[in-house]
Design a protein around this nucleic acid. Sequence first.
DNA 1: ACTTGGCACTCGAATACCCGGAGTGCCAAA
DNA 2: TTTGGCACTCCGGGTATTCGAGTGCCAAGT
Lengths: 338, 338
Amino acid sequence: MQEDRRLAVLRAIVEDYVATEEPVGSKALVERHGLNVSPATIRNDMAALEDEGYLAQPHTSAGRVPTDKGYRLFVDRLTTVKPMSSAERRAISTFLDGAVDLDDVVHRSVRVLSQLTRQVAVVQYPSLSRSTVRHVEIVSLTPTRLLLVLILSNGRVEQRLVEHDAEIAGEDLTALRSRVNRAATGEQISQAATALNAVVDGDEPTPPAMAAVVDALVEAMSDHRSDERIAVGGTANLARFGDNFESAVRPLLEALEEQVVLLKLLGEATSGGAVTVRIGAEGPYEELSSTSVVATGYGPDDALSSLGIVGPTRMDYPSTMAAVRAVARYVSRILDEG
Amino acid sequence: MQEDRRLAVLRAIVEDYVATEEPVGSKALVERHGLNVSPATIRNDMAALEDEGYLAQPHTSAGRVPTDKGYRLFVDRLTTVKPMSSAERRAISTFLDGAVDLDDVVHRSVRVLSQLTRQVAVVQYPSLSRSTVRHVEIVSLTPTRLLLVLILSNGRVEQRLVEHDAEIAGEDLTALRSRVNRAATGEQISQAATALNAVVDGDEPTPPAMAAVVDALVEAMSDHRSDERIAVGGTANLARFGDNFESAVRPLLEALEEQVVLLKLLGEATSGGAVTVRIGAEGPYEELSSTSVVATGYGPDDALSSLGIVGPTRMDYPSTMAAVRAVARYVSRILDEG
DNA sequence: ACTTGGCACTCGAATACCCGGAGTGCCAAA
DNA sequence: TTTGGCACTCCGGGTATTCGAGTGCCAAGT
């Protein structure tokens, strides 16, 4: 009974604080929400919640503010991710449907996500590691220069230049091309790499430049630089951080340029289809103690890559989570079709 | 005589103001710099400079601050772009030499430029329009799907998928490939497009899918999306804008995401090898009235593309211009070699 | 066992006020 | 044309005061 009300109070405080940006007091609370009790009762509850660490007072005789722990409880137990309006759904789909290639999908996703949430959006490019080899093309640019083009199932195209000493005859090149494709096409990228290496070590006589070509391909496959690419958008929304520029915005801007940090943050989210929320100092980055990350995986099994938003701990979690989830779904669908 | 001193005063004020961020008064001026006159004299000069619009007073009985016009005169007539220290030169070259591909060059450039100037750096990707076609590859993915790979002299690789109805025999494909390459290879991108179109309209019988292939290639060539790409870095330096977040930083962040605006700003700079400076409201964007752009072209003839920085009007122009110029030169050199 | 009204208390935010000092403009003398 | 002198202005920072929202606690009520 009382327990129920306490949770209701916590929820109400979170909602009010998110909306007003000001510590919320007992009186205002009971007025704004339909609690049928007196302010004094609420005060007792608030005191209890504070003891348990869910609320905090900026200073004596000010209203209460949710702590990280309070937000945590809020998102874990008090939140029902509210569905997006059909208008929003339509906006997402039409905007994303206009994309012409992979890069464009990513860019549009960042954009729509940042506009929807009015936060800084972050989208990791689809990672190589899960995708399969669709085709390998080998082109002779000059007598001693080969261009390798590696086409992957996720739409990404990597190319490498290979120099070699001996000239290669046309038919050798054709043979090389077909052998490489036989070994790699259709394989997941990691298997493809080992399969290619096996070809070189095998019994069949290998054309002269084979080793160099295979090396370059394997390197291109295991080069996860493109795994690490990230698109960021909506930085202008940082303006709404309002106060504490030096303490909050600057470290965030720095983190946004340090892709490693971002990847770490997003990475935590890739597991299991749900939307993940990291609140305040829960992560290992102290400088980001006043920011939260809402992220989720996307792509097949939600395991291809991840996307999300970064914002102040004081944010509208339900809407934000809904937006992140919705965008992730649409992106997944589009990647599936493409 | 007096004219000379006035200019010296203007220069001194600009330098002091940039360094201290505070309006500079007559007394401080004559102390800090070796002017051999009394403060009263300086006051007269300052009053004159104010009449002419080069200085302004934030309020009565405060020191003077340069106006945009003042900065303009400063960069136009009072500035000798000071050479970079050899340490800085070395830093630039070693950092840039580590780049592995075109994207990497661009990214590293933004990075080094933003660190050097402690401003927001902006680098436009090398534009297609000036580059030549190095090679066109046509790969048959499935019987009815062709992959076109267009390799340009600036290192960029564009690819397009083409669907067609009729199946294409291997020798037809080879013929197609060689004819396309004969027409396009080595040509500037615009000429290549017209040459390709000419092939289709010519007398020789054209293989069935020729038209579709040519169309796709021409479209890829005239698709200037990659012209419009831009890399931005060093946004964390915006923190040093200090005051006026809403009025200055927010519009800037928004502009940084509106690539069109950035391109416009950079675009002005592409002409004639020198470093261009746009100060405050000189451009068409009123929201950016307290920011300056320092930019220059790079690449052969400095006409390939452009790079620069965006920062507050109150910035150290000589150093900044030097840094921009130095980075542009190194990037040009690297692109030349690659 | 909760809830509620009352009441004294706290503390930040806003307001008013004052003061010092840096800076100016102007004038008369050099 | 330069310079010293002088009266004046005005911002920034410090202090005092007030105001009010909000709290904690207690005793009474259900």
